[in-house]
Simulated assay, not measured.
Amino acid sequence: MSYFLSKAGLDFFIAFGVVMGGAMLAGVGSIFMLLPPATVMLDTALRLKIWAIVAAIGGSIDPVRVIESNISAGHLSPAAQQIAFILFAFLGAHVATELIKLMCKGAV
């Protein structure tokens, strides 16, 4: 399998796991705090979405620097790859958020 597909797949699943795991654990914690789990899970999933993308792409500003430096130098392929990795991470976070919304649909 190519480097691009394996990195894109990992970015998707890392972002998915951050949102899904964070929302599920927030739901468990809300039970101990006597709060409504579905509401806490939905709120947590929405708030974690951007952080899941950041975590999936490396947790720093380096991917943005790669995009900027490659576009400035006229190399579009590495910049396009970084943008695609960010899009895959967004897709993973979004799918997890929608799944949490679906799971909590009847409870809110």
Rank of each mutant, 00 (worst) to 15 (best):
L87V: 14
L48T: 05
P78G: 12
V19C: 06
A93L: 11
P63W: 00
L46V: 10
V18P: 00
K105Y: 10
A89K: 02
L5Y: 14
V19M: 03
L5K: 09
K49N: 10
A80N: 01
E98F: 09
N70M: 00
F12V: 06
I50F: 13
D62L: 15
L76F: 15
A96D: 12
W51F: 13
L102D: 07
V95R: 04
F13N: 10
I100M: 04
A89G: 05
V108M: 15
R47F: 04
V66N: 06
D62T: 12
V28L: 09
G59L: 07
G59D: 09
L34H: 09
L5A: 10
C104G: 02
A55H: 09
S2G: 03
K49F: 05
A73P: 02
A107N: 11
G58K: 00
L87K: 10
K7R: 15
K101F: 15
K105W: 12
K101M: 15
S2W: 11
G27F: 08
T39Q: 11
L76E: 00
L102C: 10
G92K: 00
A8V: 07
M1P: 14
I31T: 07
T97C: 12
I57H: 03
K101G: 03
V40R: 06
Q82R: 09
I53G: 00
M24R: 10
M20N: 03
I50N: 14
A79L: 05
Y3G: 14
I100E: 03
L91H: 02
A56W: 01
V54Y: 07
I86E: 06
H94K: 07
S6K: 09
K101W: 14
E98V: 08
A52L: 07
H75K: 02
A15C: 08
L102E: 11
M1V: 12
I61L: 12
L91S: 11
G27V: 08
S6Q: 09
K49L: 15
D11N: 13
L35K: 11
L48K: 11
M33H: 09
